[in-house]
Amino acid sequence: MAAARTLTGGCACGRIRFTADVPDDAHAYLCHCRMCQRASGNVSLAMVGLRQADVRWSQEPDWYDSSPIAQRPFCATCGTSLGFRYREGTDKMDLTVAAFDDPSGFKPSSHFGAESIHRAWLNTEGLPETRSDEYQALNERWSAAGAKPPA
């Protein structure tokens, strides 16, 4: 078995938190299937496959029966999508990469659900880039709300 890192993550509001033992060779991928697109409201969902036993929840997430064969953990308070698992027959599950506190260590190694890939969104290199911390209108809104943007 590959060495593992213990990583933490959770939803946007912090109600649902997890700790996961992530093997160095964990399979991170982009899922483009229509179910993931609909569940996330996005063109793809970055996921990492893990053993369910390697994921510990501080509070059990809410579960959505997204189909007759699968369930998706999420936070009913803020709506954050946290992953995917088959309802039975496996000890595996996937967590959304962006739900990790530091998702920078994951690199996609494949695409799944290729029949639904929106190719225009695959390579966005060269498009104009705007940093949110340099966008004045956004920073003025945070300031007016008496808050700081999330790090």
Rank of each mutant, 00 (worst) to 15 (best):
Q71P: 10
Q71G: 11
N139S: 06
A76H: 06
A151I: 10
Y64M: 05
N123H: 13
H32M: 07
G14Q: 01
R34Y: 14
I69E: 15
L50K: 04
R51H: 14
A99V: 00
D101C: 04
P103D: 02
A2C: 01
K148I: 11
M1E: 13
H27G: 10
T90A: 10
Y29D: 06
Y135C: 09
M47P: 07
S116F: 15
S67E: 07
M35S: 15
Q52R: 15
T19A: 08
W63T: 04
S132W: 10
A26Q: 01
C31P: 00
K148G: 12
R38T: 15
L30Q: 09
C33P: 02
A144C: 02
A2I: 03
V97C: 02
P103G: 01
R34F: 14
R51M: 14
G146N: 02
G10W: 00
R38L: 13
D25R: 06
R38D: 13
C33F: 10
S110C: 09
R34T: 15
P73R: 07
V48I: 06
D65N: 11
A3R: 09
D94C: 00
S116M: 15
S110E: 10
A99Q: 01
A12I: 08
A144P: 03
C11I: 04
A12V: 09
L95M: 00
D62P: 02
E60Q: 07
P61V: 01
S58P: 01
N139H: 04
L7E: 07
G146F: 04
R85W: 06
L45A: 10
R119H: 13
A26G: 01
L127T: 13
A53P: 06
S143K: 12
D91K: 08
A114F: 15
